[in-house]
Amino acid sequence: MTGENAVRLRPPKNALNERAIGWWRTQLLLSTFIPAVVLAVLGALIEPTRMWLLAAAAAVTVAGLVGTAFFPGWWYRVHRWEVTDDAVYVRTGFVWQEWRIAPMSRIQTVDTVRGPLEQAFRLATVTVTTASAKGALTLQGLDHEVAADLAERLTRITQATPGDAT
């Protein structure tokens, strides 16, 4: 298609909630802290490999802290989502960008999940399951009230949309 009738894919307009940055940082710190502590304890207990285990603990800690400082802000800048009356749009990634579009007629289920850390940050994840081999669309890092409203809205729209979602 060219000219006036060309359809141009535009970035989805909604950012995640800013609290997602803290949520991601906490997840990364926890996933760094546990292996680093295990390696440090083993290093303290096992004499012949002490130096290597403590060096590994230090490397895991440094890599985890660098990742914690860098990645959550980056993820926040590149993750976008939008829901229209026709489809759900999700864009993730920077180096390998993924754009997912799920037409309302293809949506089968809408789930809202709030794990313990998400609850602490007043966030939620909305999963939109479609009749696609690619799998569900996931919107992480949404304010829990926005997520509840979104799930309700998607349910209303999909019920009113003709089609059998297969």
Rank of each mutant, 00 (worst) to 15 (best):
G163N: 06
R91K: 09
E18V: 14
L154K: 09
A36E: 02
L45H: 05
R106T: 14
L123F: 13
E82Q: 14
T109E: 02
F33S: 06
V128H: 11
A44C: 10
V37W: 12
R122E: 15
G93L: 02
D85I: 11
I107F: 01
F71W: 03
V37T: 14
W52F: 12
D86T: 11
T155C: 00
E18R: 14
Q119P: 14
Q108G: 05
H79K: 06
E145W: 13
V66H: 09
L139A: 08
I34W: 15
L42C: 05
A63T: 06
T161V: 01
I34D: 11
A6P: 06
T2C: 14
L54R: 11
G64W: 01
E82K: 13
V37H: 10
V146C: 12
I34L: 15
A20K: 04
R153A: 07
L16M: 12
V78R: 06
A147F: 10
A136E: 05
P103G: 14
R91P: 03
A120D: 12
V90N: 05
A55I: 12
A131Y: 10
F94T: 04
E98P: 00
S31E: 03
S105R: 11
G135T: 06
H79A: 11
R156I: 02
P72D: 04
V110T: 06
P162R: 00
F94L: 12
A148Y: 10
T61K: 04
G67T: 01
T138C: 00
Y89N: 04
